[in-house]
Write a protein that binds this DNA or RNA. Structure first.
Lengths: 209, 209
DNA sequence: TTTGTATTGTTAGTTTATTAACAATAAAAC
DNA sequence: GTTTTATTGTTAATAAACTAACAATACAAA
């Protein structure tokens, strides 16, 4: 299949979550406008996304919940699953590990890293923490392909480089430091300060009108 | 000034952060390609954004760092500042509070809320925690206009409604539950599960090529 | 059976965001 | 003093994302 648009992939993830809830409620079929309502977008967008993944529902009956869940799984997940690590065990790193605990079976956090020797001894929500200088070894040994970066901004750039050297294929950067990675490494991320300032700007602008 | 594009606002926040570092290093002027390099975008985009905010640099000398910082401030910040609260004191809520501690003077987290009576007694990084049923009172009393939502997904929708009723003007939703708010309330947010699944999809796609 | 209705799938249009192109010009080089 | 160069500001072109429009059709109602 051709590569899907960025935003469509995001929504597929959301569709699946909503569909899993539907399935738990023994709902077997769902209309585009129902699914749209669950995540507050338009029915057209749902239909268009579903068209892009090549699925087709039945007229006047909607989409088969089971089939759609399993198709999205085949698109997003890999057969054997992917391993993920968290680099930097501050409040945020811990929050993420706990949050994911048992949530997604095809994406498992199998290792954490920190520079602080105190933390290295610990196991966080079942995830063992290794010293950061073993990054490369552990990543290669365990075949980890995605890293979640929650280290302090000052060291983010260097750690990012190490991660690439270790063969990581995707980095999610939660530090305020912009990273640059090579062509074939996926780079995602989120900056909480920027997002708050953005909110402030639009709140301010709304107020002035 | 006309309302700025979404993405431009985001970048302005990033420009300012980069510029503050430049100022700390006693750099007085900066070229578009230098600023672009710092956050890994193109010089054209920098120039275009700066054009949109109506600033103009000097040819062959670049932009005045001080002036640009202060202009971005006048655009994003409000004179008197805005107050922010964090709703839900789990690992993530604590992480956010600590993270912002003293970072931005014009945006201050002044209150936290939680349902757990144990947490209500506490002060987190200088921010007092109130019981969640005092949401409306405290928000109005303190004139809080932005809320950061880190409660469990199951209660997100109800808390969101209460926030609007309390007069909140912007919500940043860190729960996986989609929120719907009225027209004139700003809604931002981020979903860590979706972003990880998205990373997985692109890592997978890259590998297949 | 025929007509009407609800819903999908898809194409065309619109908006938003990014990138390319280039005129204008101040400073530097000669 | 003239030419070259580096850099800005802006317009035009392209790409990505979203929205509207509507043909096709299965089912329900008459």
């Amino acid at each position: 299949m051709k590569i899907l648009p960025d935003k469509t992939v995001e929504r597929l993830s959301q569709y699946r979550r909503a569909l899993l809830i539907c399935r738990a409620e023994n709902k077997t079929h769902i209309f585009s406008h129902e699914l749209a309502g669950l995540i507050h977008i338009t029915p057209v967008q749902v239909r268009r996304d579903i068209m892009l993944i090549g699925y087709t529902g039945t007229l006047r009956k909607g989409y088969d919940v089971h089939e759609l869940i399993s198709l999205i799984g085949r698109i997003i997940d890999t057969e054997e699953g992917l391993r993920v690590c968290v680099v930097g065990i501050g409040d945020l790193g811990r929050a993420i590990i706990r949050y994911f605990k048992g949530k997604r079976t095809k994406l498992v956090i199998t290792a954490a890293f920190d520079a602080n020797p105190e933390k290295v001894k610990c196991v966080y929500s079942g995830v063992p923490c290794y010293p950061i200088d073993q990054l490369e070894t552990v990543i290669k040994e365990q075949g980890i392909s995605i890293a979640i970066l929650t280290v302090p901004g000052e060291v983010a750039a260097t750690v990012g480089q190490t991660l690439e050297k270790a063969g990581i294929k995707g980095i999610i950067n939660y530090t305020p430091t912009p990273l640059n990675v090579s062509e074939n490494t996926y780079l995602g991320g989120y900056d909480m300060i920027t997002s708050l300032e953005k909110a402030a700007y639009f709140v301010k602008s709304n107020r002035e009108m």
